[in-house]
């Protein structure tokens, strides 16, 4: 990517992870990795967020929560599945309460593997997500424009 066109805000939700990926997501925001210098902020409000970071697999109880958080985020939005559990269930794949990866509940754009995902990998995933976000934004604008012309 040549440049970042936007200061993306993150929403982070812990699906059913072991906490490992969550502390690595937080570690990205703190001095050693410090993504805040790119204007990336961890927000608690889904309506402020552009990128949705989900860690851990999906189970019966959090499926609705993840879906609801996703629905509350404004378009265009990107979902990043952080860690192998969020990608496909990982080590807990066979556990009775795990349905699978985050893509069982909401569409996922970027998959970040690792157990736990390293901060470098998470940052890389977010940068990839920014590219997807840019494209989605273009498509979103084009769709809007077309709608206006059709009126």
């Amino acid at each position: 990517m040549a440049k970042i066109t936007k200061s993306p805000w993150l929403l982070h939700y812990d699906g059913s992870s072991c906490n490992g990926c969550d502390i690595e997501v937080l570690a990205c925001l703190t001095p050693v990795y410090d993504v805040e210098r790119f204007g990336i902020i961890n927000t608690g409000n889904p309506k402020h967020a552009d990128i949705f970071l989900v860690t851990g697999g999906i189970n019966e109880k959090n499926k609705a929560v993840v879906k609801q958080l996703y629905d509350q985020m404004p378009e265009p939005k990107v979902v990043v599945a952080v860690g192998i559990c969020a990608c496909n269930g990982g080590v807990f794949k066979d556990a009775y309460n795990i349905i699978g990866g985050v893509d069982k509940a909401i569409p996922v754009d970027v998959y970040v593997p690792g157990c736990a995902a390293r901060p470098e990998a998470i940052i890389d995933g977010v940068v990839k997500a920014l590219g997807v976000l840019d494209e989605k934004q273009k498509a979103f604008k084009a769709a809007k424009k077309q709608k206006g012309e059709n009126k």
Partner: peptide, 14 residues
Amino acid sequence: IGFIHRGLEKLVDK
């Protein structure tokens, strides 16, 4: 509680 329940104690079977 129960949002993160995975049932990993039962994985001893597998």
